[in-house]
């Protein structure tokens, strides 16, 4: 495992825990897109179907269990425990606009036409765009709380660090995964605007506000 990947994974864990921490301590899901979290939950479940069929390492299995359980917990907090605080009326992005294309693409572009491989490709494609409802919500309400901004930054950094990991693996191991790399680049590019606002505002101690 490359250092970039380890840093990426830790950034991913940090993002998930930050979000849970925010919702739990403020007892509120305000400003958080339930749709994005629901799609991330679908991403983990459809990608980690191999949890019981192919063992890679204790590290891999632990992370998979952590991602699935933290994601299910997040969805539960948003849609059940703190449902009253969830801004459903600002969370207007249509999930089928990304789920259907991700599924169609997975049926066309996969490493083998098997249930596991199609499910894996679907999860990779869906992950690339699952953040759209959240970014759309930030744009719509015009701002994000600082902790939500830190969450988005950690989540964006995760795939950006994976890109460095893929470059490293390509040069040193000859490893190249076109599906993951393509989706990962799209995923990172989607955070472009947000990264800019994060560095120019949040880091300087201001709240993240999108200009009208």
């Amino acid at each position: 495992m490359t250092l970039f990947r380890l840093a990426g994974d830790l950034s991913h864990v940090l993002a998930i825990l930050l979000l849970l921490y925010k919702i739990w301590t403020t007892k509120s899901a305000a400003g958080i897109s339930g749709k994005t979290q629901l799609m991330f939950c679908m991403v983990y479940v459809t990608r980690y179907l191999d949890l019981f069929t192919s063992f890679i390492s204790v590290y891999n299995s632990t992370m998979k269990v952590l991602f699935i359980s933290a994601s299910v917990a997040t969805v539960y907090l948003i849609y059940f425990k703190f449902k009253a605080t969830y801004d459903g009326n600002h969370d207007t992005f249509r999930m089928e606009f990304v789920i259907v294309p991700a599924l169609i693409l997975a049926l066309i572009w996969n490493y083998a036409f098997t249930f596991f491989e199609i499910s894996w490709a679907f999860s990779i494609f869906l992950e690339a765009v699952a953040i759209l409802p959240q970014l759309f919500m930030v744009t719509k309400t015009g701002e994000a709380e600082n902790i939500t901004s830190h969450y988005l930054f950690a989540l964006g950094s995760y795939r950006a660090l994976y890109i460095l990991n893929w470059i490293d693996r390509y040069y040193f191991e000859g490893h190249w995964d076109p599906i993951a790399v393509t989706a990962g680049i799209v995923q990172t590019v989607l955070y472009g605007d947000f990264f800019y606002l994060y560095f120019t505002r949040v880091i300087k101690g201001r709240k993240l506000q999108v200009l009208p």
Partner: peptide, 10 residues
């Protein structure tokens, strides 16, 4: 082996 290699990341 090829298939395994694609799924060693998270």
């Amino acid at each position: 082996k090829e298939q395994q290699q694609h799924h060693d990341e998270l």
